[in-house]
Design a protein around this nucleic acid. Sequence first.
DNA 1: CGCACCGCTTAATCTTGTTTAAGTATTCCG
DNA 2: CGGAATACTTAAACAAGATTAAGCGGTGCG
Lengths: 194, 194
Amino acid sequence: MVSNLILSNFSEHVQLNETEKEQLLSVLISRPFKRGELIVKGGDPAKYMLFANEGYMMTYYTDSNGSDHVISFAGAGWWASDIYGSLSQQTTPYHTKALTDGEALLLPRLSIAHLLQSSPSFERYFRIVFQKGMLRQQKRYIEACSTSAEERYRSFIAAYPDIIAEVQQKYIASYLGITPEFLSKIRGKLARIA
Amino acid sequence: MVSNLILSNFSEHVQLNETEKEQLLSVLISRPFKRGELIVKGGDPAKYMLFANEGYMMTYYTDSNGSDHVISFAGAGWWASDIYGSLSQQTTPYHTKALTDGEALLLPRLSIAHLLQSSPSFERYFRIVFQKGMLRQQKRYIEACSTSAEERYRSFIAAYPDIIAEVQQKYIASYLGITPEFLSKIRGKLARIA
DNA sequence: CGCACCGCTTAATCTTGTTTAAGTATTCCG
DNA sequence: CGGAATACTTAAACAAGATTAAGCGGTGCG
């Protein structure tokens, strides 16, 4: 398991000493995955936070009508946005699925609790991660309300060309909050213009 | 300034000792407000986090077309959800407005930084606040995608009857992501049924 | 090889919610 | 008290996006 990515992610926000680094690395669990594999199933006990060390994952929610809603994608160097694994809660409502082959690093809930208690640096790190997460979610909500599907698609390809390349269209559609059919229509229109 | 509310909010998540309590109270600034008053204006330097000690506030965003989008309401005992004041950033894009007469407690950004450094309890408190905030925002996004405006309105009145009583309809409409006209239509329909 | 499945596309029809516009009720304020 | 904003309602025309259904192309597998 190569752990440069997660260490550099931490060091963007806090400075860990060698002991803390070792402590972190010692509790991470490598979890290789294959394209299409369901890594965490909604309804199951939420035991971990998931960091993408390699490849792509997505976190999504199945509503009461059986429709899926993609909450976010996570490429290498990102946390999956199912953070129920960080709470002393029984289950997560979210699924997390592999979109490509790759490797996740699992951080067990109990280890999180332990890290948080052992050093303020960890409290600080997760405080910042959640602070940014909250801001990102707010921004996404506003964009969903105030811009058309076509605009959202355009800004998505501009912002995440790598995800467009790797991820199936139906998941992009779900992320944008539209049907695959409508995304196809938008793409047809954009291709005709270009 | 009576500060029971904010202390009891903190004590829901962390246990502060007397020194920490005094430290917190000593940096809070009382900010009484009148109904309709703009407490924080979008585009201005973000200097504070705002805690509602009495009355109701709302945080909203004005998009590039000039339409407003209510991000959240904050009644007594809640933080306003503009958390830009907690970052070392220049400005906030969000407005915060008084919906009733009341009092906000302002927590200056520099004081936050100071609290965070002086005790892990404060890191922990804000970590939990942002963690919950992120989850709330995710939930809201999913609801916006997966349920009709009528359902959202019904669950809103069920969950926040006090806000319905205090807050103008056009702001509720904005919060639900619909036009005031359409909310009026929904209300008409529900009244006819009942 | 063949066929079943899955993802993408296209197009017609339908729904939800918007826009525009007009009218009514309230509240604020001199 | 009176007049002017401002909030809410109603209704018709309209638009964005959903639904349904059909067809097409690749791909995995017996």
